[in-house]
Amino acid sequence: MSGVPPLPSFADLTVTVDSGVAVIAMSRPAKLNALTRGMRRGLAEMLRHYGGGSHARGVVVTGRGKAFSAGMDLREVTGPELDLPAEMELFNDITRAALATEVPVVAALNGIAVGGAGEMALSFDARIATARAAISWPETAAGLTVSNAASLFLPRLAGASRAMCLIMNSARLGACQALDLGLLDDIVEPDDLIPAAIRLIHRWTQPGSSTAAHLRLMRPSLSAVEAAMAREVAAVRQVQESGIAQAGIATVLTGHGT
């Protein structure tokens, strides 16, 4: 896996290959790694590049600083040209890229994962976190809607009734709560977060393992994922056209700007 062709550089994203595993870090800590359009495009491209099986045994996605990611950078999407369906599609393409990989994709949650960032993590094959991590879905209270096929992945992981309550209550789950609900696979010490994610990928990709075949079998079908994302895009279009989303974004930026 030496001689990996260089990727174009993406602002606020870094990648290192550690023990054959590509570790992608969202590197905008002063803004809690809030995801710009460029970062979302870059994540999808990096997943496609390293996920083909020839450049890495697996991919880990993590954040720098005290947050995994505060979700979509709302300051970037304000104004009269707001197009939330287009913004959501940039998130959805991360999910498409992750599900198309031939190698495992693991989220290493070093801190809070908000909205689309938490939903992105749900679409990965595993999630490991530190005790200070949390997952938050503020969309309902903010007049927004979920993305990344979360309407499929969250019920799949936590059960339909729990998923309904989590979304409708705009819940924030600590790491232990998320582990109990099946949304996390392990909680480790901060210094062991990336090593633990790499060890998991190594266990899943031993020589001779049928890893790629089982990833295809165990992941939901692409048709089901695309159907969920289509419903989510239709929903966000509806809340934008009603004006609910614009009002919610303004309230969030006034009170809790990223």
Rank of each mutant, 00 (worst) to 15 (best):
Pro8Glu: 15
Val17Pro: 13
Asp18Thr: 11
Val21Trp: 02
Ala22Met: 04
Ala22Cys: 10
Val23Phe: 05
Met26Asp: 04
Met26Ala: 09
Met26Gln: 12
Arg28Ile: 04
Pro29Trp: 07
Lys31Tyr: 10
Asn33Glu: 04
Leu35Gln: 12
Met39Leu: 12
Leu43Gly: 05
Leu47Ile: 01
Arg48Trp: 06
Ser54Phe: 03
His55Thr: 12
Gly58Leu: 03
Val60His: 02
Thr62Val: 09
Ala67Pro: 09
Ala70Thr: 08
Met72Tyr: 04
Leu74Met: 15
Pro80Phe: 01
Leu82His: 11
Leu82Met: 15
Ala86Leu: 05
Leu90Tyr: 07
Ala97Ile: 00
Glu102Lys: 13
Val103Asp: 05
Val103Asn: 00
Val106Trp: 00
Ile112Thr: 08
Gly115Glu: 12
Met120Gly: 06
Ala121Tyr: 01
Arg127Ser: 04
Ser136Ala: 11
Pro138Trp: 01
Ala142Lys: 11
Leu144His: 02
Leu144Gln: 05
Ser147Gln: 15
Asn148His: 08
Pro155Tyr: 03
Ser161Tyr: 06
Ala163Gln: 07
Leu166Ala: 06
Leu166Val: 03
Leu166Phe: 00
Asn169Met: 14
Asn169Cys: 01
Arg172Val: 06
Arg172Cys: 04
Gly174Phe: 07
Leu179Ser: 03
Asp180Ser: 10
Pro190Trp: 06
Ile198Arg: 01
Arg199Glu: 04
Leu200Met: 13
His202Arg: 13
Arg203His: 09
Gln206Arg: 14
Pro207Lys: 11
Ser209His: 10
Thr211His: 00
His214Tyr: 07
Leu215Gly: 03
Met218Ala: 12
Ser221Gln: 14
Ala230Arg: 15
Arg231Gln: 12
Val236Pro: 13
Ala247Ser: 11
Gly255Lys: 11
Gly257Glu: 13
